[in-house]
């Protein structure tokens, strides 16, 4: 029933399907990691989402709670600019520029992160 040409056809179709699928997957991950979306989380809840790539001018966000913090977002990056918490570890962390990076202020239970998975590591032990 099958001719040689049929088998070739089947093989070609499978290859085309596989390449297409691989292409879509790569494109999707690349697209997802290209756009830098920052999230500000307080008490486990997302209180603000910012598209860092779409920012035209710097944006300052005030976060209150037990302590007070100023978060500064610019095109492609975000950081804790100022805080009145005792250890100021959040400010010392500096700029977050890459997907998967995060900074947190434990005393005020606030975290900022750039959403998505880092290409190289899943996390860092410290």
């Amino acid at each position: 029933m099958f001719k040689k040409a049929d088998i070739i056809l089947v093989v070609i179709i499978i290859i085309v399907a596989a390449i297409g699928y691989a292409g879509i997957t790569i494109y999707r991950t690349a697209a997802a990691n290209d756009v830098k979306i920052a999230e500000i989380i307080q008490d486990s809840k997302v209180i603000r989402t910012i598209n860092l790539d779409a920012l035209k001018s710097p944006l300052r966000i005030q976060v209150s709670g037990d302590y007070h913090e100023v978060i500064l977002a610019e095109k492609g990056r975000i950081r804790f600019e100022d805080a009145d918490c005792p250890d100021r570890i959040c400010v010392k962390t500096g700029w977050l520029t890459k997907v998967g990076e995060s900074a947190s202020c434990v005393p005020n239970r606030v975290m900022i992160k750039i959403k998505g998975e880092s290409q190289k590591v899943d996390g860092v032990t410290y």
Partner: peptide
């Protein structure tokens, strides 16, 4: 496998020296 970075002790949190 999971890829866990080891913090660079003299750099901001999240910077690592190895995986």
């Amino acid at each position: 496998p999971w890829r866990v970075g080891i913090q660079n002790p003299r750099a901001p949190t999240g910077k690592y020296i190895g995986i």
